[in-house]
Write a protein that binds this DNA or RNA. Structure first.
Lengths: 162, 162
DNA sequence: GTGACTGGTTGTAGACCGCAACCAAACTGC
DNA sequence: GCAGTTTGGTTGCGGTCTACAACCAGTCAC
């Protein structure tokens, strides 16, 4: 036995609520969270800045989205000059994407905006609670991951989605 | 000062990750989470079952979506016989929505499916951790709420989204 | 009764998403 | 080296979820 049905319901309700609120915040407080970047800019530019130039498929995997989606988003970022593309020397089919000066600046600006915003939204939190929540969330995400990513492998407890 | 920048970044990253994973789970594990209901069925039928017949606008507010969206979703549920509509005796413009027998059964079936699913996904959790996380999440949602709901009131620290 | 208000519906449009089809480069075997 | 297959990426298309604006009809104030 793991957790009681009541607690399970409460927990799933809390999660659902957070997901919903998160979506709303990200549309309402868009200016504070995105800056001049499009909504997906953060998720794509951050790995580029942190891990250096990489392929479109790598970004897609990292962001947990389909390559086709990443392709379009990257194209948009490239149009806006936040990202630049050069042919991969090791493989003529692929492109290596890297963040531009302009992209770095935009990312930094967005980071600062987010910091300000978080300062207001999380003012009631102290260090230990925040860390505790973060740890628990990471654990939860890790447990949920198998049900999210890569479509269910054959023979798993997870039947085909439809 | 509230929490350190590092912790703040970590926490926001954890939240973003949960939101993303949550979205993926809800598409991948759709069959386990929704049953025969459409994706929005849970959010609408649950309040109807718990609080009894109510108006469309009430459901919308509860679910945190626009009335127009709720109206369409309710129409779909009504077409499928999960919900029925009768004129509000107190106000001829409004309809009172209530869950039907069929809706109740579908909701119960979905609830059972979810219980099974959660049993697997949350098998590593114990009661105290789950409660703790749930409490922290609720607190977080409460702090985020002002930035989510009702468009920013004039004179608030939150400028117009765009 | 006339005018303002309000609950709800519908038209329209935008943001994301994934799948399928496709192109071109790269690898494989012979 | 040349068919046949695999692989990185792009594009076409359709579906879902969302909000806003325009609108209709019933209600309320006076």
């Amino acid at each position: 036995m793991t957790i009681s049905p009541e607690t399970r319901d409460r927990l799933t309700a809390s999660i659902a609520q957070l997901v919903r609120t998160g979506r709303q915040v990200s549309t309402r407080a868009a200016a504070q969270l995105y800056g001049e970047l499009p909504s997906f800019g953060w998720a794509l530019l951050l790995p580029l800045e942190r891990d250096g130039a990489q392929r479109c498929s790598s970004l897609a995997a990292h962001a947990g989205i389909d390559v086709s989606v990443a392709s379009r988003q990257v194209a948009a970022l490239e149009r806006d000059g936040h990202v630049e593309r050069r042919p991969d020397p090791d493989d003529g089919r692929a492109s290596l994407l890297s963040i531009t000066e302009r992209g770095s600046l935009a990312l930094a600006a967005t980071r600062a905006l987010r910091a300000d915003w978080a300062l207001g939204a999380l003012s009631a939190w102290d260090e230990t609670d925040a860390r505790l929540l973060s740890d628990l969330l990471d654990r939860l995400v890790a447990d949920l991951e198998p049900f999210a990513g890569h479509r269910p492998a054959a023979g798993t407890a997870v039947p085909a989605p439809r």
